[in-house]
Design a binder for these strands. Structure first.
Lengths: 216, 216
DNA sequence: TGGGCAAATGGCAGTGACTGCCGTGCACAG
DNA sequence: CTGTGCACGGCAGTCACTGCCATTTGCCCA
């Protein structure tokens, strides 16, 4: 961090949509305007090199207003994770009954991989984070949040009497690690993402079967 | 983040120890003085509430000097992860030949759990991070780095012809998720950490065996 | 059509995190 | 005793963010 501040959960998202949906709609316009201007600039000049003043100017709002929509530069970049989390938890809930935990993980991962990869912005964001450590950390900062969300979803899906929620938490972490590797493999090569996911799951089962390559 | 800066890999650690080890020794004294003063203050007043000026004052150095030793408040808190990573990679390398991947993970995790839990500071740091989102993110920021280190260690341990290093990366992520949950369970209860680790591994095998609790 | 209210915005000043630059004091070699 | 090299302190400047206040804008109602 350059000037220095503390990350904090943004106070902006989800404000009471009192006066009807039209207002909210307008806010969305501004929000996406800022967001898109920012990503454009990040991709062009780099995450840390881009100033909030510049983003605001590019989006046609004041700096002060930027902060009414996003808590920080990092927060802006992290918004994608919110959608990511939503996709995942939906996938977990929507998986057919009767599947085992790992199969549910796969179901959800598949869904995210295909639906998520469709967003054009994803490529751009992956590229930004691959060039800037700060950007990577901005994403990572949300990881705990997403993991908690997943743990809850798994807990709902596989209820247990244990109060420590061990299994759900483990599954949450596992899912994220899996997808992390998957996206990395995918963005490195140029094969479709489902291939990457297949490979990852193959590797996983190899590992857990303990039949993997022996030590030299 | 409050005032705002970008996270950056610190430029401080590992400077050329030219003039003999004595100099280095002296630097270590200052470094740990700052570090301990900081942790004390974090624990007392909170991570974000504590100012770098205050830390420097408490350690008896100037603010400018603080930044000669640590790149940021977050970096300071993240230093623990470096040691963590070292412990883990050593454990992976030191595990007896002939173990399967998951057994190596367990061996390394056990080692870290016991050795790591011995450090008195660990409790304090866990407590700090549990009270401050910013502190948590400071730790998390290092996670990618640690994961890469683990992946390398696993790759050395289980060589493969694949260029994508899928399996090692997966193992790295898995290990961290495992330990994450373990530490959380441990610090929540008051049983020895090896118990927590046992529980976690039990949960893991249950999951991968697909014999876990069925959906309702 | 003219208020009037409330939300959205812009501007401003202030704090804290960091960085580059420069001057000083101290330690050790010569 | 003098130079040289560090480590350190101080200072000024940038950027991220925040609280506060004044203005504008959109909209409902008279």
């Amino acid at each position: 961090m350059r000037p220095g501040h503390n990350v904090r959960t943004m106070p902006v998202t989800a404000r009471p949509p009192r006066p009807g949906a039209l207002h909210t709609r307008k806010q969305d316009v501004v929000r996406t305007a800022i967001s898109e201007a920012a990503i454009e600039l990040f991709a062009g000049a780099g995450f840390e090199e881009t100033t909030i003043d510049e983003i605001a100017a590019a989006a046609g709002v004041s700096t002060r207003t930027f902060f009414r929509y996003f808590a920080s530069k990092a927060d802006l970049l992290g918004q994608g994770m919110v959608r990511y989390r939503a996709l995942l938890t939906e996938g977990i809930a929507a998986a057919p009954r009767g599947l085992g935990p790992l199969q549910v993980v796969r179901y959800a991962a598949e869904r995210v991989a295909t639906e998520g990869a469709a967003f054009p912005r994803i490529r751009q964001i992956l590229q930004i984070t691959s060039h800037s450590a700060a950007a990577r950390e901005a994403q990572l900062a949300r990881r705990a949040e997403v993991e908690d969300g997943l743990a809850k979803a798994f807990a709902a899906r596989f209820p247990t009497r244990r109060r420590d929620n061990l299994m759900p938490r483990l599954l949450g972490g596992l899912t994220l690690s899996l997808l992390d590797v998957t996206f990395r493999v995918w963005s490195a090569g140029d094969k479709p993402i489902t291939n990457a996911l297949d490979d990852v799951f193959k590797a996983l089962t190899a590992v857990v079967d303990e039949k993997a390559v022996q030590s030299r």
